[in-house]
């Protein structure tokens, strides 16, 4: 079947099967390889993308069901340079091997849009569906708090100006 997917604001026509999952479309058809396959069972979160602003595991999300939604991938949020959370992840050392990183960036992007001033507990709970085997998470949490702080400071600065 042919469907139209709106990925990072661009409509793409793709040929899929009814059983195709979104991750395979993104990686194999659209060559957006930022989302990673870590388990294909919704346990690790490396394949996280946003659908209508909510993080989902694209490895078990029906591609056909994603028609008529807004799909955002790590490529999309990186289009205009590093976002606040991406910058903070680099600066704080929230990255090691990097394989979980795009998924974690997507989850935290959703978190910061919904909660501009999260607590460390909020961040940890938001990451329940994202496994990082390398970092022990501390620097990912501190990166998120830093990104939030920077964004709020920027906003205050903008309001002042």
């Amino acid at each position: 079947m042919k469907i139209n997917l709106k990925v990072n604001g661009i409509l793409e026509e793709v040929e899929i099967e009814a059983s195709t999952v979104l991750l395979d479309v993104l990686r194999d058809k659209l060559h957006l390889t930022g989302a990673k396959e870590g388990c294909r069972e919704g346990e690790c979160g490396a394949c996280t993308v946003l659908i209508d602003g909510q993080p989902v595991d694209s490895c078990l999300y029906s591609a056909a069901a994603a028609a008529n939604t807004e799909i955002e991938t790590v490529e999309g949020i990186s289009a205009n340079g590093l976002s606040a959370i991406q910058k903070a992840m680099v600066e704080e050392g929230g990255i090691q091997c990097g394989f979980c990183t795009p998924g974690i960036v997507m989850t935290l992007t959703a978190l910061l849009r919904q909660n501009a001033d999260p607590t460390p507990k909020d961040v940890a709970a938001a990451l329940n569906g994202n496994i990082c085997r390398c970092t022990g998470y501390s620097r990912i949490v501190s990166a998120t708090l830093k990104a939030a702080k920077n964004a709020m400071a920027q906003k205050a600065g903008d309001a002042h100006a």
């Binding site: 930022g34 989302a35 396959e37 991938t73 590093l82 680099v90 990255i95 990097g98 394989f99 795009p102």
Partner: peptide, 23 residues
């Protein structure tokens, strides 16, 4: 000094190429 890692931007944007990404 805690200089950020050189491969950070590639990893955080999903551009870093892992084996599964090769075609």
């Amino acid at each position: 000094r805690s200089v950020p890692r050189a491969d950070g931007p590639g990893k955080v944007t999903g551009q870093t190429l892992y084996t599964a990404d090769i075609e």
